[in-house]
Design a protein around this nucleic acid. Structure first.
Lengths: 136, 136
DNA sequence: AAGTTTACTTGCAAAATACAAGTAAATATC
DNA sequence: GATATTTACTTGTATTTTGCAAGTAAACTT
């Protein structure tokens, strides 16, 4: 085995930020499904616990992947949106989607989406970026 | 938020297979560092516990990402190698590496590697594939 | 003014992980 | 040929993380 140092390994760096069962699902909710509010994430389907959700949102914000702002149109809630750093996870998400669509016999991803991933990926990713205005 | 069904979500499918702290690090050891044996993974640097490692190798094999074969040159050990399904995680790993190299101020990834990722990705990935002979 | 929505927090049980020690077969060494 | 070492684990227990249920507080609706 090669004599690679494990400190500063980029895979480890990433996993320390979103390498758990829930963080990447929350990023999926925000980036791909357009989720904005706490209840969106709670109701996303996988059944995350409310305490875990609160903890993960805090971590994601602390790591600069998302920002939390008071919703001025309804001050009971906050709007969660991705930062540039968060948005740039989309290409990785796309690779994961392509892999899963290939190997999940019950995949819900439609063929036209996979086709676009293969032939028109840049535009697809750009369309997702365009939905958000970048914030620090 | 869009009315997407969470069943059959490709991100969830993937996370159910390698969405924990260790599985993707093991795949990194195999795919990128050329690790083959139990002790390679134990000594990879992050300090995985031996019981957890045994459990994850079993899961990865059960999900068809790796195969385990007796090493005929030294029958005390087994050779772990990636399947086609496992190898095809490389593109996702590359996206994660690119993301981490950009956002980790202490990244250990050399600039020439990032440059190659951007300008010559296909060949880089192919070189990794070529190191393994495909097995079911 | 009372009820509802929204985003959490808190307490406790259950599950997963980490740590330390032990086992067994194959190989190397004396 | 006996003894030590390597290799890949298993087992037991403490610690940490997660899951579940209930509760809180501020903003908004009725």
């Amino acid at each position: 085995m090669e004599d690679t140092r494990s400190t500063n390994c980029p895979i480890l760096f990433a996993l320390d930020i979103f390498g758990d069962k829930w963080s990447l699902l929350i990023m999926r909710d925000i980036l791909i499904r357009g989720g904005k509010y706490y209840k969106d994430f709670l109701g996303a389907g996988e059944g995350i616990s409310t305490n875990i959700l609160a903890n993960r949102l805090e971590q994601l914000e602390r790591h600069g992947l998302i920002v939390k702002q008071l919703d001025e149109t309804n001050k009971r809630r906050f709007v969660y949106s991705p930062t540039q750093k968060g948005m740039e996870l989309v290409p990785a998400l796309m690779e994961i989607i392509e892999w899963s669509a290939k190997y999940d016999p019950d995949t819900g991803t439609p063929p036209w989406y996979i086709e676009r991933l293969k032939t028109d990926r840049e535009a697809l990713i750009q369309e997702i970026y365009d939905q958000f205005q970048t914030r620090e």
